[in-house]
Write a protein that binds this DNA or RNA. Sequence first.
RNA 1: GGAAGCAUAGCUCAGCUGGUUAGAGUACCUGCUUUACACGCAGGGGGUCACAGGUUCGAUUCCUGUUGUUUCCACCA
Length: 928
Amino acid sequence: MNRDFEKRYDPKKVEGEIYSLWLKNDCFKQSEDNSKETFSVIMPPPNVTGRLHMGHALDNTLQDILVRYKRMKGFNTLWVPGLDHSAISTECKVVNMLREKGIKKEDLTREQFLEHAFAWKEKYGNIIVNQVKKLGVSADWDKIKFTMDPSCSRAVKKVFVDLYNEGLIYKGKRIINWCPNCGTSLSDIEVDFCEQKGSLWYIKYYLVDGREDDFVTVATTRPETLLGDVAVAVHPEDERYKKLVGRKVLVPIVKREVPVIADDFVEKDYGTGAVKITPAHDINDFEVGLRHNLEFIDVISKKGTMLKNTGRYAGLNTKEARQEILKDLKLGDCVLKVEDINHNVGKCYRCSCNVEPLVSVQWFVKTKNLAKPAIDCVNYREDTLDSCSPTNKNMKCFGENTLEKENLEYTFLPRFSDDEKLTFLPKRFSKTYLNWLFNIRDWCISRQIWWGHRIPAYYCKDCGEMMVSENVVEVCAKCKSKNIYQDEDTLDTWFSSGLWPFSVFDWPKKTSDYDKFFPTSVLVTGYDIIFFWVARMVMLSLKFTGKAPFKYVLIHGLLRDNLGRKMSKSLGNGIDPLDVIDKFGADALRFMLVLGSTMGNDIRFSEEKLTASRNFVNKLFNAARYIYLKVSDNLDCLNLKRIPENLHPEDEWVLGKLNTLIKDVERNLDNFDFGIALNKIYDFVWDIFCDWYIELSKVRLENDLEDIDSRLCTKNVLVFALLNVLKLLHPFVPFVTENLWQIFTEKKLGPLMLSNFPVDIKVVACSQQITGTDCVIDIIKAIRKRRKELNVPAGKILSEVFIESDCSENIKNNLIFIKRLARISSIKIVNDSNLNNGKENEFSVVIAQRSKIYIKNSELFDKDEEVKRLKKELEKFEKELEKVNAQLGNREFLNRAPSRVIERMKELKVDLLNKVEKIKDSVCGLEK
RNA sequence: GGAAGCAUAGCUCAGCUGGUUAGAGUACCUGCUUUACACGCAGGGGGUCACAGGUUCGAUUCCUGUUGUUUCCACCA
């Protein structure tokens, strides 16, 4: 016995070896043949911060299935792997790592810090790459890119400078989201809103020129910001306050006189209908401030503490300041009441610390003009747009400096041909994408951290001139001073990720890979980063290459734990794919992630499903083991590629089913229906191939009557079918299939992963042979069932059995199978009349699809029980017959239903009538 | 406040453009050391396809509404 064939498949023994084999054979490289159609995928680059998680496993499995399938289909395939520097998260990790070593970031120079950071990237980047490889990922590792590689940096600089020169990047003082913990600004989508318990304080603002007890009550959740208040706003239509508009109130504590203004952003029904306005520390208030020309008073620092101008509160953090201010307000009798409420608080998406809105100078991308083509290029159904609400169809964007809202009715231009368009799968995600683009706001791209692409802007210390340039600026363009420094800020990590589809090809250099493989074919990713990543890639690709970066965006769901909760670090319910691979093998993991999943839907992780997957892999392995046992002696004589002649009916049967499977799987994979495809292969392998064909083959291989040619034919079919199954399964479970392929081909045919995907095997599967075998199987099943019903011991061999059948010709030649698999020593084919001699009470009658089986053996069952059983069966068939008769009696049905449906219904009726009659006969016979 | 998904066997989920008796895995019950596999084999029970309407000769499938559930967007002090 080949040492490769233990009873159980052991993935650990083979996976590493197989992966090396692929690498050694350059299996992941592209073809030299330029005539081949190309298929390219860019890997969503994992962060260099963490370990592989289930999300990566799913994402990469789906990509690998696609890429392997297309490669086997003969496409020139490129899958570019990569790593993301993930600016803020990596910086946080490095800072923490240094802190543990007793090093403070503040004590390091920028260069020293970056050295540590690159060392980190080196270490953890390698770790995650190795983890990704464990999944079997067939990406071209020689082409791996890192978002901070010089070539990527070059693309970043070029894009930044071009956008700046076009006025699409600007520097401005605006309110932004600030994370005091990370010490940097954040873009809008980097803020997560969490519901939290809080209080709503009702605070009195006394009128300046009113009576002593004339005041306006303002409700706020953030009393500490009142130090920066510059107005109180009410709704223009609010009758309660109409008279007050234009008058002045006194901000408590600071005793500042501020106007009461009218603005329709105020909701009359919330709180008291009067809002304090703090333009420097609230996003809405900021806009109000601009509209009403109000002063911006900063009171909170970037560290989250109160500024000097707050007097005795200076230096306190916002939480402490709130307590002190409330205390003082109460002393002044300014607090009317407190209400407990639930409200949403913005949190940093990386560190979960409360985000502080504040005004600062940052760099922004003007997104409106970039968004328009990104909307145009998407394939959507008309009704997708209809369901975007009318306000959503107006593009609300901020103009430069003025920050005034421009409302532009969006008009669609047929600028993209169908061929150039981008399609989301499932389609519904195009709606998510479009809705976001319709409401897009300018994108804050500067970050106050060191790890990332430094903004290519330079300043002259002498004259203050700002110069934006791809090259390092050493001399001031205006005053020729050499006293130049570079902007300290770095770019949002998504800025460089947004260029990924073309920066991986060394754009803006003209490379042959760019020419061949851009735009890419499919992007596979989760719905959670459609905004962060997909939309930006589309906008920037259209802008700089003129093309959508991919043809399809395949969206998959998120992974959930066995209770249906999102896998997350904070819950601690994440499952480590590496543990799973260690215990069950990479193939089982991949199988589990795909089987029974649907595009775009979340996937629930369960150990049971994993076990089932592992069992399937083992089943396949054992089927191969059996075949190898039978075949290894004369493997040389077998033609692995061609179907033998002189096929038996069951050979044609299995090959016919295989052929259907091949066509189905191909269609499903072309439609990205991986789950359905895998399910079909599963059914074929387990039910058709193992449970039936292999069992039937045993009869032929062990039967002395069969001649050598016939046996060879069986072996050939076994091997042929197995090898085709291996090909079909390879994209899903690459390791075990490659392993078996190597054994069977004795390493002569090269790697399975470079072989051709099965095509129509053109077996002349005569439908008669197929139904004939189906009929035989049906008889075996029926007899087994009856044996069980009558409690016939499993080992008991029945002696006298008679079969009457529509396919008696087929059965005649296949009696041997029925005997063996149903455990019968002798069978006779009969005509109806043969047994109609009043002897029916001596037989148990079994009704199969197209046959009637008489098992003689009165001692096997209780007569009364048998009559009862038959009557129950009769009732069932009669009920069905009634239904069918009703259908066929319905004139409308006969007029309108397609003829094939009617024909089928008629056939069914004949079949049912036949069955009913037979059972009636039997009952009659028994009751005599 | 706006949008989307899901609701099918005890559990986890398939079910393409409506058409025989709605499927699988798992769990459960009954047998089986049948020579590839007990990570297995054979057989079995188990579903008013959430609810209510509508379209249709015919609805698990299409439409509308209701309920439950999950998620995304918005951020209202």
